[in-house]
Design a protein around this nucleic acid. Structure first.
Length: 818
DNA sequence: GAGTTTGAAACT
DNA sequence: CAGTTTCAAACTC
């Protein structure tokens, strides 16, 4: 795993490419990967070629390594004209030394998003920030510029433009690369390398990252001394140009130095936004300077490591490749990913973590690779941006980028669905979204894509947000007058948040926009709204306050339980149609989880034992009835009537056994039988389904009872599959009897009821004591135990994910063989 | 569109 | 931590 990276580094460490190295097999290998014919050969054209988006073959299994490696290789390929051999070297040392620290920072910065960040850390990758290949993303941002450059016949003009671009690059390596590009002789390469090396060191130790202007000047000096005349010419202009362009951004640069990574990303996003403006003035390449200028001093030394880079324009393409590499896990999706190309750049923002104000993603992430899409959309958006969002849509690139991101996100959603069938219910229309995104028209899309972004985040962290289904539809509803109407019309598309806040100033979680991590838009009907870019500081402060109370306050409410295998997902299990669950669970008392008052229902996910809802009839999956409730219901069938459920249930074990057949099972042996019934269920309309499930609520609970009452029975995977916690029951079954008894129900209940309102087990225990060895009691105890880890969303998701998944899969394997 | 219902968020 | 209040979305008319 490491060897490729190391090899690559080693190979690139000798940019001069000594004959020995060049003739080495490894060098040949690298050459094949990214044949660099000539320094000046087709500098830009190749960048837009389709192969730029081809992901490296999944030679290596490690996502992380692959990401870096693949991205670097691709980047090199993309940047073939830029002398890739050099690109990595200048920053190599810095990168190697900082990767660890960066990842560490990521982990520390957002406990809840550790998994996501960690997962993306590589993708976001230092290499990306260091790698000159990032240049290949520039065209994405400043496509007009590059087109201009490409069309320019005057080499000097082109060089000047490029040099300016180089100046704008925060990555010194990039600068050196461009310098190299403008230089034909090998000596210049060496000089550049030396210079770059020095610059890297300087930047590491100085605030040069924070001051693009000084950097530009620095470069100017250096160029004047070391570079050719054309460089001099361009450099001087560049410095001035930079000064002009950056004057405003720099003013704002140091305003926000909260130091939190999330904040940084937000800043970066804003910087990118400003950069987009610059791009419109053919100064797109200054973006990263702007970004850097906003980096908190604390991050200055690790400038290239700071996520803002990731959300920068340049990274779009290269990062998309990273994502693509990730997609190698699912080859079919991988191909799709490639098609989407830079859309994956959205993920670059993902590392932001849960708290990221997601609007910024759209701004910060310039979709780079999806040039075609961007261009297509930009034309349309440009005509509407100012119309619909005069204060925000400063350039079409931004929106087009966002739109592309949306498409990417949707694409990723598809991945999620494929990768994790369990998410299908949570993301029922991921494919639809993908299609819908193709026709996105409104600039609001860029503002409202955050749910998709969330999905990306969730995907990265095995967290899946629902609510994306009909977002596009609502997004297309542009009339502010119909805000409320829209929300109603798009009831299915609960993803879109157009708040109507009157008293919260849109700075509380009451505000759906704020809660979703997006700024309010003009279409919102809110009053006295502070959730706007103008009040960025206020928003961020408020967010921090809220997060201080609840670190996961801005986390997606719908989480993908990583434990769910395909066994559970597609079986139409009424109780748990999907592994996606509401993070905290609902607390419905009257709506029976049949209305959008219920967050679970609203998210199109089933209730789980994390919910405290009463009389749950959630058509997407009812809350597993506690053993106590089941027992109560069993003892007092009238309760079913009281709850609105029919009294079809007869508390006899025989009938329960029959009822069990009605519960679709993911069990390999039961699945077919169960699927038939589940298929019928799926044919029901939603309401009918709800009713059906409501009526069968007892059946489900009965199933539970039956399972636990008959240890020798087939494993109740279909029920357990819905919730990883349920597998603990099975695990418990495997425990020696003494161990089984050891966990006290009290403890279990405590843990299992994050909201502290779940049914307490004491009653059940009393029942158990009465029943003695009754299977029912036994199962009840187990159920309580299993409920312990039921919904651990408050803990870093990935922490328990892996182990749970392993355990679950192992257990499934073992139990299914039973 | 106004008023009511509902449940999450915030507060005490 | 439990109860209460506030809030805004969802819903009804």
């Amino acid at each position: 795993m490491d060897s490729p990276e190391g090899d690559r580094i080693a190979s690139t460490s000798s940019p001069a490419s000594s004959p020995a190295v060049q003739e080495s097999p490894f060098f040949n290998y690298l050459s094949n990967l990214s044949p660099i014919k000539s320094v000046k050969a087709s500098r830009y054209a190749p960048r837009f070629s389709a192969h730029d988006f081809n992901a490296p073959s999944p030679v290596f299994t490690s996502p992380h390594i692959d990401l870096q490696r693949g991205s670097s290789l691709l980047k090199r390929d993309e940047n073939q004209a830029a002398g890739p051999e050099i690109q990595g070297q200048s920053g190599r040392k810095l990168k190697d030394g900082l990767i660890a620290s960066y990842q560490k920072e990521i982990q520390l910065s957002s406990p809840s998003s550790v998994c996501v960040d960690d997962y993306l850390a590589d993708a976001v990758d230092l290499e990306d920030s260091i790698n000159p290949a990032n240049l290949c993303v520039q065209p994405t941002i400043g496509a007009p510029q590059f087109a201009k450059v490409e069309e320019a016949n005057d080499n000097k003009t082109r060089d000047v433009v490029k040099t300016c671009s180089v100046r704008a690059e925060e990555d010194l390596t990039v600068q050196s690369m461009n310098m190299v590009e403008t230089t034909d002789n090998q000596e210049s390469y060496n000089e550049v390398l030396e210079f770059t090396s020095g610059m890297v060191n300087d930047n590491v130790e100085s605030d040069i990252f924070q001051d693009p202007l000084s950097r530009a000047e620095h470069n100017d000096q250096y160029m004047a001394q070391n570079a050719g005349s054309q460089h001099k010419k361009g450099d001087g202009n560049c410095a001035e140009r930079l000064r002009e362009i950056l004057s405003e951004p720099v003013k704002e640069a140091n305003q926000h130095q909260c130091g939190t990574r999330r904040h940084l990303q937000f800043e970066a996003a804003m910087a990118s936004k400003r950069t987009a403006i610059c791009s419109s003035h053919n100064d797109c390449n200054l973006t990263h300077n702007t970004i850097n200028s906003e980096l908190p001093s604390g991050h200055a030394n690790t400038g290239s490591l700071v996520p803002p880079h990731l959300s920068g324009i340049r990274h779009a393409v290269s990062y998309h490749q990273d994502i693509t590499s990730q997609s190698c896990v699912t080859p079919p999706e991988f191909a799709r990913s490639n098609q989407k190309g830079g859309n994956h750049s959205i993920s670059s923002s993902v590392p932001s973590g849960i708290g990221l104000h997601l609007n910024t993603i759209g701004r910060s992430v310039f979709m780079g690779s999806d040039m075609v899409t961007s261009k297509k959309i930009s034309g349309y958006l440009s005509s509407q941006d100012e119309k619909l969002m005069p204060g925000r849509s400063h350039d079409t690139a931004k929106d087009s980028d966002s739109t592309s991101i949306l498409a990417v996100a949707s694409e990723i959603c598809v991945h999620v669905g494929d990768d994790q069938p369990g998410s299908q219910a949570a993301l029922p229309t991921s494919s639809d979204i993908s299609q819908s995104t193709k026709t996105l028209k409104s600039p609001l899309d860029s503002q409202r894509m955050t749910l998709y972004e969330q999905q990306v985040v969730q995907y990265e962290g095995k967290i899946v947000a629902s609510n994306n289904a009909d977002l596009v539809e609502e997004l297309n509803q542009e009339s502010p007058k119909k805000k409320r109407k829209k929300a109603t019309d798009s009831s299915e598309s609960d993803g879109c948040k157009r708040c109507n806040c009157k008293r919260s100033k849109c700075l509380k979680l009451y505000c759906e926009c704020f809660a979703a991590g997006v700024y309010c838009v003009d279409s919102c009907a809110c009053q006295n709204c502070f959730n706007k870019p103008e009040y960025e500081d206020t928003v961020l402060d408020t967010r921090q306050q809220i997060e201080s109370r609840n670190p996961l306050a801005f986390a997606p409410k719908i989480v993908q339980h990583a434990t769910h295998s395909s066994l559970v997902v597609d079986d139409g299990n009424r109780t748990t149609p999907s592994s996606a669950r509401h993070k905290r669970g609902c607390n419905c008392k009257k709506s029976k989880c049949l209305k959008k008052y219920c967050e679970c229902y609203q998210a199109n996910v089933g209730c789980s034992d994390g919910c405290r809802c009463d009389s749950c009839c959630n058509p997407f999956g009812k809350k597993p009835e506690s053993i106590y409730e089941s027992a109560e219901r069993w003892r007092n069938p009238s309760h079913a009537i009281k709850d609105g459920t029919t009294n079809q249930f007869s508390p006899t074990w025989e009938e329960l056994a029959d009822l069990r057949l009605l519960t679709p099972s993911s069990h390999p042996h039961l699945g077919m039988l169960a699927s038939s019934s589940s298929a019928n269920v799926r044919d029901f309309s939603k309401g009918a389904l709800a009713e059906f499930q409501c009526q069968s609520s007892l059946q489900s609970s009965a199933t539970y009872l039956r399972w636990h009452s008959s240890p020798t029975n087939l494993t109740p995977q279909h029920e357990f599959g819905s919730d990883s916690a349920l597998f603990d029951i099975l695990k418990d079954d495997n425990l020696p009897e003494p161990l089984k008894d050891s966990p006290t129900p009290t403890k279990a209940v405590k843990i299992s009821s994050p909201n502290k309102k779940r049914v307490s087990p004491p009653q059940f225990r009393s029942q158990e004591s009465r029943s003695g060895s009754s299977p029912c009691l036994r199962s009840g105890r187990k159920f309580i135990l299993q409920a312990v880890p039921s919904f651990p969303p408050l803990t870093p998701y990935c922490n328990s994910k892996g182990s749970n998944t392993e355990i679950e899969s192992d257990h499934l394997g073992s139990t299914s063989d039973q």
